[in-house]
Amino acid sequence: MDIIVLKELQNQNKSAYKNVFNHFYKALVLYANNFLFDQQASEDVVQEVFILLWENAKNIEINVSLKAYLYAMVRNKSLNYLKSLKITDDLNVIELNSMLVLEEDLDLISEEEKTILYNHILKIIETFPKGMQQIFKLKFIENYKYYEIAHQMGISVNTVKTQLKRAKVKISESLVILIALLSIHS
């Protein structure tokens, strides 16, 4: 199916392009918003991606699914946008957020393996101390900002950042082992 759609896009079939746009637009805006936390900027980034898709359709080579390609473009455009604003992600919280909220970053593994990883992440979070669990959930489920979490919990912003960094380290260490095990069985 992707091959047919890609051929139509390369031939600049407006109907196929419109269908791809309508099918992916809302989800891509939500995805961009996980990086940018700004609805207008997210919409702008996704529109830029579709403009690039249209302008460069004849030269585009997609080695993964069209969906994975579009999500990768949106992720890269979003990160470039943040860089242009001089926003740094020293804790890699943005990347962690995108991995936890959306599975498109894991497009090279099977659906079964994604389910295993997702369930494993949930189990890891359950092992966190209560305070860390609450901070993690406020940040990644409720999309609170650092200062909002600090205010709600009566702690400093630095404590919030430290707890999120520790949570990320725990998740990363566990996932490295699990991904290695999954790749052995593949």
Rank of each mutant, 00 (worst) to 15 (best):
93 V>S: 07
63 N>P: 03
115 T>I: 11
59 N>I: 12
73 M>D: 06
69 Y>S: 10
18 K>N: 15
111 E>N: 11
87 I>Q: 14
51 I>L: 11
114 K>P: 08
120 H>A: 06
120 H>K: 13
32 A>W: 02
74 V>T: 08
80 N>Q: 10
119 N>M: 15
54 W>H: 05
25 Y>T: 00
110 S>G: 00
78 S>Q: 02
79 L>H: 10
23 H>R: 08
33 N>M: 05
31 Y>C: 05
23 H>T: 10
41 A>K: 03
21 F>M: 11
82 L>T: 09
96 L>Y: 11
31 Y>W: 08
47 Q>E: 06
89 D>A: 05
42 S>M: 09
108 L>I: 08
34 N>F: 03
99 M>T: 14
97 N>D: 15
90 D>H: 10
75 R>C: 08
118 Y>K: 10
62 I>R: 02
101 V>P: 01
124 I>R: 00
117 L>E: 00
35 F>M: 12
57 A>S: 09
93 V>L: 09
42 S>H: 09
95 E>D: 13
113 E>H: 04
75 R>N: 10
85 L>F: 04
60 I>G: 00
18 K>M: 15
116 I>M: 03
114 K>E: 14
60 I>M: 04
82 L>D: 12
20 V>T: 11
94 I>L: 07
13 N>P: 07
118 Y>L: 04
33 N>H: 03
92 N>A: 13
79 L>S: 08
94 I>A: 02
93 V>M: 06
91 L>I: 10
102 L>V: 11
69 Y>F: 12
77 K>I: 00
42 S>I: 00
76 N>Y: 05
56 N>L: 07
68 A>M: 08
91 L>C: 07
56 N>A: 05
61 E>C: 02
110 S>A: 01
102 L>E: 07
30 L>H: 10
31 Y>L: 05
86 K>I: 07
119 N>P: 07
78 S>M: 05
117 L>H: 01
70 L>G: 02
22 N>Q: 14
51 I>Q: 02
81 Y>H: 13
59 N>L: 07
115 T>M: 13
70 L>N: 06
18 K>G: 15
16 A>I: 12
70 L>I: 09
55 E>C: 11
116 I>L: 05
45 V>E: 09
31 Y>H: 06
34 N>M: 08
50 F>T: 09
43 E>P: 03
79 L>W: 12
121 I>Q: 00
79 L>V: 00
96 L>M: 11
100 L>I: 15
91 L>E: 13
53 L>W: 04
92 N>C: 11
44 D>S: 04
49 V>D: 06
36 L>R: 00
46 V>D: 03
16 A>F: 00
37 F>P: 06
36 L>T: 07
64 V>W: 03
91 L>P: 04
87 I>M: 11
52 L>P: 00
38 D>L: 05
95 E>H: 14
72 A>L: 13
30 L>C: 15
19 N>G: 07
124 I>G: 01
106 L>R: 12
67 K>L: 02
90 D>E: 13
69 Y>E: 06
26 K>G: 06
113 E>L: 04
121 I>R: 00
54 W>S: 05
87 I>W: 10
58 K>F: 10
27 A>P: 03
117 L>Q: 01
107 D>T: 10
58 K>G: 01
86 K>F: 13
37 F>S: 14
41 A>T: 12
53 L>F: 04
72 A>Q: 13
29 V>G: 02
